[in-house]
Amino acid sequence: MGDPGERLKDSRSHRGLAGDSPAGLDAIDLRLLELVQEEGRITLSELGRRVRLSPAAVAERIRRLEGNGTITGYAALVSPAHLGYGVLAFVRVAPRGGLTLRHPRPQKVLARPEILEAHHVVGEDCWILKVAVRDTGHLEELLEQVMTLGRTTTSIVMSSPVDRRVIVPIGRERPE
């Protein structure tokens, strides 16, 4: 995104400017997106200071980014381990009998609080579930329910050297 101290100018219109991202965002929008992803509790005043805009101008841009669906929400990142979930795992599921994620049986399983994410994917398996459980006994109990849907393959996470990254538009690289 460049040096945070570099001078960024507010563009009042949002027509395609030279150097705009493929998503139609200018340098200020991109910097704001980077900052709110890195520091979700950053104030409008601090955002304005970092991009050299007034808090009102920053608020207008943030509202526009929310309104057009670029910013989809805000959340606190919570450590599962601090809440008693000692094992993180990915469970791949190859459903049987033509089950889809919309069917009531998978919906009942997906409603379990241990299932943090569910993804419909292309490949040998159709679904990938990210789960957090207390221990391997808890994992076994969860898998017994998931296995009613089809064949499973489970991978327990040993560590996560890249836990979460700031996402930027395609074609732009984050500085080292």
Rank of each mutant, 00 (worst) to 15 (best):
K9N: 08
R134G: 08
V166Y: 01
R50V: 02
K130L: 14
E38S: 03
S45E: 10
A132F: 09
A59D: 14
V78N: 07
G69Y: 07
P4G: 08
R49C: 12
L35C: 03
G24V: 06
K9A: 10
A89P: 05
E140A: 08
I167A: 15
G69Q: 08
K9S: 15
E124D: 11
G48F: 01
G16E: 13
A89G: 04
P161W: 00
Q37F: 02
M158L: 12
P4I: 02
T148G: 05
L142P: 00
L139R: 03
R7W: 10
M147A: 12
I71H: 01
P113I: 10
D163Y: 15
A76K: 12
R112D: 06
E66D: 07
S155C: 15
G123F: 04
R61E: 03
V122D: 06
Q145N: 15
G69C: 10
N68D: 12
P106H: 02
L110C: 00
A94C: 10
R15T: 09
P104K: 05
S13W: 06
S45T: 12
A76G: 12
R61G: 00
N68R: 08
L149Q: 04
H119D: 08
T153M: 10
D3L: 12
L65Q: 00
R112H: 09
G86S: 10
R165I: 13
V109N: 00
G24E: 03
P55C: 04
P113W: 11
V133A: 12
G69I: 11
V146T: 01
K130R: 10
L30N: 02
M1I: 14
Q107F: 02
H103C: 04
E173N: 09
T100P: 04
R134M: 13
P4M: 02
R174W: 09
G69H: 08
P22D: 04
T72P: 06
V133Q: 06
L17W: 15
M1P: 14
R165Y: 07
H103F: 13
E141H: 15
R96Q: 11
L44H: 13
N68V: 11
R92V: 06
L35K: 01
Y85Q: 08
D29K: 00
G150Q: 07
E46S: 13
L139V: 09
R165T: 14
A18T: 14
C126V: 11
H103R: 06
T43S: 07
I42W: 00
D10P: 09
R15Y: 15
T43G: 06
V162Y: 10
